[in-house]
Write a protein that binds this DNA or RNA. Structure first.
Length: 290
DNA sequence: ATCCTATCCTGTAGGC
DNA sequence: TGCCTACAGGATAGGA
């Protein structure tokens, strides 16, 4: 569910809401997420003040005072929810953080693929979850040539390559398809076979698609919500994702769904040709020979 | 090193 | 209506 734009939206929401607040009490569900939540998490973050909220790729980093950082990943179905007045019990709420003024911050995650881990702020970037991440494309705008050089020799399909968080951090299954469609690159091309020009187009579209999605508070396909339980509106802008069989908005061709690395990929075979453009001569010769 | 597969978990949509 | 299966925006360990 949540990719970079959704996580950035939540980060901004958290920054606007809980920055400077001091945690008064914590309640845990006791259920394990991707990893078990530390049993003493509550005692370790009680009385800590929230100093900053940052993000790398899909990871949120909530820095507290006393050299503590809460690392959070939303997985497929995680949500942070803020309440001025907390409602009655909700299912799948694994952490409830209460502040002194009665407001609360909840972490809800039905599928429990999310992550919550407390680490030392000074050593946070050495955490195994963060240490292997590639650059965050919002913090560090990517250059086509840098991507081109780095992908040299990679035989994996460009779609799967963009999902690899150690290459670029933050792109997920929806935006990978959208980015490649706008760049006019077939998702089936080997990453190492893209030309420098094509990487320029991919780099431009990474910045443009992610930026516009942040402006619209992300894409709500089903689970994702902002901190105030509102849907994002980038879903209106999707050109290929979940549109199999429908007409391409650019060329009128039919959007196709394929499976790559066991994930759905959507693309327009006409706009996103598998072959690089060939000289007109070879086409003419093929016709005359028929 | 690279690449692929299976796995963790619940909710939901679609077929019958 | 209800039952069953397939699938869903994620990362990661382990094997080829």
């Amino acid at each position: 569910m949540p990719e970079l734009p959704e996580v950035e939206t939540v980060r901004r929401n958290l920054e606007a809401t809980v920055l400077g607040r001091t945690i008064q009490s914590v309640r845990l569900s006791g259920k394990k997420l991707r990893d078990p939540i530390s049993r003493n998490l509550g005692t370790r973050i009680r009385n800590r003040r929230i100093e900053s909220v940052s993000r790398h790729g899909k990871f949120l980093l909530i820095d507290l005072d006393e050299d503590q950082t809460l690392i959070s990943h939303l997985g497929m179905s995680g949500r942070w929810l803020f309440y001025d007045e907390p409602p009655g019990p909700l299912p799948h709420v694994h952490v409830r953080i209460a502040f002194a003024d009665g407001t609360e911050l909840w972490f809800q995650d039905p599928r429990r693929f999310g992550l919550l881990r407390l680490v030392s702020t000074s050593r946070r970037s050495r955490d195994p979850a963060l240490s292997k991440l590639g650059p965050d494309p919002i913090a560090t705008p990517l250059r086509g040539n840098w991507l081109f050089e780095r992908a040299r020799g990679a035989r994996v399909a460009i779609k799967s390559y963009l999902l690899d968080q150690s290459r670029v951090a933050g792109i997920g299954n929806i935006y990978a398809s959208e980015i490649l469609h706008r760049a006019g690159v077939s998702p089936r091309r080997p990453a190492g076979a893209l030309t420098a020009r094509e990487w320029d187009a991919v780099a431009d579209e990474i910045a443009r698609v992610l930026g516009e999605a942040i402006d619209r508070m992300g894409t709500t396909f089903s689970m994702y919500r902002t901190l105030w339980n509102e849907p994002g509106t980038y879903g209106d802008q999707l050109l290929v994702y979940d549109r199999a069989g429908e007409p391409c908005r650019r060329c009128g061709g039919t959007i196709r769904r394929i499976v790559q690395s066991q994930r759905s990929t959507f693309y327009c075979p006409r706009c996103q040709s598998l072959r690089r453009r060939r000289p007109a001569l070879s086409i003419a010769r093929g016709q005359s020979g028929a």
